[in-house]
Amino acid sequence: MTDISVRGLTKRFGAVTAVRDLTFDVGPGAVTGFLGPNGAGKTTTLRMLLGLVRPTAGTATIGGRRYADLAHPRRVVGAVLEATGFHPGRTGRDHLRILARRTGVPDRRVGEVLDEVALTGEAGRRVGGYSLGQRQRLGLAAALLGDPEVLVLDEPANGLDPAGVAWLRKLLRGRAAEGRTVLVSSHVLAEVAQTVDRVVIVSGGALRYAGAPHADLESAFLELTS
């Protein structure tokens, strides 16, 4: 029920085609890497999947439904799109309390996800003073609030230190081991290679490869996206 299905997805911004007839599937119980160079259309694809950008053609569904048609979207899909989506004058805890209400989960979930991302000590500070890594953790905490079956993360490792990357890997592997669906975009191959079970590689808005990761992911990536 939590498969991600992308079918013939296309997005044109004026004369520019950002995503071109993209088709792929993402199944549960695995971490799927969504890879491509900068400007490959990864973020636009994820935004279409989440109902933020209207596709020019094609569909992107989660468990067979468009995001906008999910009854409680944040309890099905947890998304982290960028590290900047915070009001700098609001505390981390208040940010999560707002999202908890919007997600339809009790306030105690705020404390739980703060513990889960190891941010409890910073929760009372205004987000404007957070480091990039702390913002990433806060974004991840927000995505986990609804205990979703599907995680969609856009470049989640940006700004994380090596310990943070290791922690993130463990978290994503744990979600997949529970049978959940994890889709994570990245252009940093080294960090992805150790985390993913499957890869979807895009370049120039079009699909280049979908399947098991190659033993030598870097040379395969460079060949596929050149």
């Binding site: 989440l50 933020l52 979207p73 944040r74 960028e82 900047t84 989506g85 009001h87």
Partner: peptide
Amino acid sequence: AGEYRHRTITDAYLAEPR
């Protein structure tokens, strides 16, 4: 417009796509 400025509009629309 303030939500667009701080990009919190994304969270608002993710929580309530309508």
